[in-house]
């Protein structure tokens, strides 16, 4: 990975739409250019968070899956 993770949001156990809601709340506190790692086990988030990033004008850096945990990396634009 060629980016530094600024913070991690553990949204595991939460279901739609809460991972997006929690991500949005975290973004309010983040500075521009900061990268967040969102941990989720909600399969919907794998599709929804990239759409969320596009809709809000932020950048999706990548998605990694480790067993049940999905790690989604987003950069605040």
């Amino acid at each position: 990975m060629d980016f530094e993770i600024g913070r991690t949001l553990d949204a595991r156990g939460l279901s739609c739409p809460m991972p997006a809601v929690k991500t949005a709340l975290a973004f309010e506190e983040m500075s521009i250019g900061e990268v967040i790692e969102v941990l989720t086990d909600d399969p919907v988030s794998k599709k929804d968070l990239p759409v969320w990033a596009e809709a809000t004008g932020n950048k999706l850096l990548g998605i990694k899956e480790e067993e049940k945990t999905i790690k989604i990396y987003l950069r605040k634009a």
Binding site: C16, P17, M18, A20, V21, T23, A24, A55, T56
Partner: peptide
């Protein structure tokens, strides 16, 4: 409220 909160999360 699911739709409302999801939409609000999208600013």
């Amino acid at each position: 409220f699911v739709i409302a909160t999801a939409a609000a999360s999208m600013a």
